[in-house]
């Protein structure tokens, strides 16, 4: 991907999104950062200008809004050649399972909202006939539902299926669609969770894996050893899996 290709990051305030922003900016890409409250990232603008000499613009964006995708894209200062969707919302499993309104919010934030936006963007990007990419951040939680986390997992599974469909739909174009499934990452989202040290990585490592995956045009990227972990987890027969407690 050419280094001055503009990058749009949806859900830019998360720790993983910021790490990805640093990685792209470090390679010279100008950035458009979309998030609910752009003023919270104001300090990023001079920081990236000094650090990397790249331009950063901030844009107001609500992940759960299901209309106005075209206007949002029209109003960007330039059309993105790379879109990274890092939107994510993880709530307490019990609360989400027991409260339909909260479950709806989890599904709309992690799945429906981003999917609708990427659908509109994909059509435009493919039509440019230039090298371009969509990177969607799913989760290993979407690979197999677990009692501890299945509302979030179901939403991420839906998102991954949508991305897989997009990938096939645009296979004949210059648009590359990549799904990223980070395992455990030390972030604000997982703060306070008891994560196993050896298989938990920092957001910077996830960002590096993503950029490497993009260079090689991988389709599905797992971070660190999670491809192997998930291969094993997915291979466990259901009668056994349902009795496991993790």
């Amino acid at each position: 991907m050419i280094s001055d290709a503009p990058v749009l990051i949806l859900g830019a305030r998360s720790d993983i999104a910021l790490a990805i922003a640093h990685a792209f900016a470090g390679r010279g890409h100008p950035l458009m950062l979309a998030l609910r409250s752009p003023n919270r990232l104001q300090a990023i603008v001079p920081d990236f200008e000094i650090r990397y000499g790249v331009e950063v613009t901030l844009h107001s964006y609500s992940a759960t809004k299901l209309t106005g995708q075209a206007e949002f894209l029209d109003n960007l200062p330039q059309q993105p050649q790379i879109i990274v969707c890092a939107v994510g919302l993880m709530t307490d499993q019990e609360e989400a399972a027991g409260d339909p309104a909260l479950a709806k919010q989890v599904v709309e934030t992690n799945f429906l909202g981003p999917a609708v936006m990427l659908e509109v963007a994909a059509e435009r990007m493919a039509a440019t006939n230039e090298d371009c990419a969509i990177i969607g951040i799913g989760s290993v939680a979407g690979d197999r539902g677990r009692a501890k986390n299945y509302v979030y997992g179901a939403a991420k599974a839906g998102f991954a299926a949508w991305l897989s469909g997009l990938r096939q739909k645009y296979a004949a174009t210059q648009l590359h669609v990549m799904t990223v499934k980070p395992g455990f990452v030390r972030t604000q989202m997982t703060a306070g969770m008891n994560l196993p040290g050896p298989v938990t990585v920092d957001p910077d490592a996830v960002a590096e894996d993503i950029l490497k995956g993009l260079e090689k045009k991988h389709h599905v990227v797992y971070t660190s050893v999670w491809r192997w972990i998930m291969t094993i987890i997915c291979a466990i027969p259901e009668p056994i899996f349902k009795k496991l407690k993790f």
Partner: peptide
């Protein structure tokens, strides 16, 4: 209360 300042790490002007 131990307040980590690690995330407030931006360059502001040079």
């Amino acid at each position: 209360r131990t307040v980590s300042m690690r995330h407030l790490n931006r360059l502001l002007a040079f």
